[in-house]
Amino acid sequence: MTQETPTVLARWVEAVEAELELPAGSVDVTEVLDLARDAAHHVARPAAPVTTYLVGYARGLAAGAGPRLPDDQPDDQLAAQASRLALGWEPASTRGDT
Rank of each mutant, 00 (worst) to 15 (best):
Y53H: 10
G66R: 00
V29Y: 11
G88T: 14
D75F: 06
M1I: 09
D71P: 00
R37T: 15
L69E: 14
R45M: 11
A92I: 03
V29F: 06
R68V: 03
V43E: 12
R37C: 12
L85M: 11
T2K: 12
P49T: 04
V8Q: 14
P23Q: 10
D76K: 05
R95E: 06
A44S: 07
A79Q: 08
W89Y: 15
P74S: 12
R68E: 12
Q77N: 10
A15L: 11
L9D: 01
L87R: 15
R68I: 00
D76H: 15
T51Q: 01
H42A: 09
G56E: 01
H41F: 12
L85H: 09
D97A: 07
S93R: 13
P49A: 04
R37M: 12
V29N: 08
P70R: 06
A39L: 07
L78H: 05
G60F: 05
G56R: 00
P67H: 01
D71V: 13
A80M: 09
L69P: 02
V8G: 05
T30Y: 08
V29S: 11
T94V: 15
E19P: 01
D71I: 07
R84V: 11
M1V: 11
D34G: 08
G60L: 06
R84K: 14
W89G: 04
A18C: 10
E17P: 00
L87S: 06
P23A: 11
Y53A: 10
D76P: 02
T52G: 03
A82R: 01
Q3W: 05
Q77T: 10
P74Y: 02
L22P: 04
E21S: 14
D71R: 10
Q73C: 10
R68Q: 14
A10Y: 02
E90N: 09
R95M: 07
V50N: 07
R84Q: 15
A39G: 04
P46W: 02
M1Y: 05
V27Q: 09
A40M: 00
A39M: 03
D72M: 06
P70K: 04
T94A: 15
Q77L: 15
D28Y: 09
V29G: 11
V27H: 06
T7W: 04
A47I: 02
A15W: 08
G56F: 02
G60D: 08
A82D: 03
E90G: 14
W12D: 09
V50A: 13
P91V: 05
V32S: 00
H41V: 14
E21N: 12
T5S: 11
L33V: 08
R95S: 09
E4K: 05
D34V: 00
G60T: 02
E4N: 10
L22A: 14
Y53Q: 08
A82S: 02
G64T: 01
L61W: 01
A63M: 08
G96K: 07
A47R: 01
V55P: 04
L33P: 04
A48I: 02
T5V: 12
A65G: 08
T94M: 15
S83N: 03
V50K: 09
A58F: 06
E90I: 07
Y53S: 02
L87Q: 13
R68M: 11
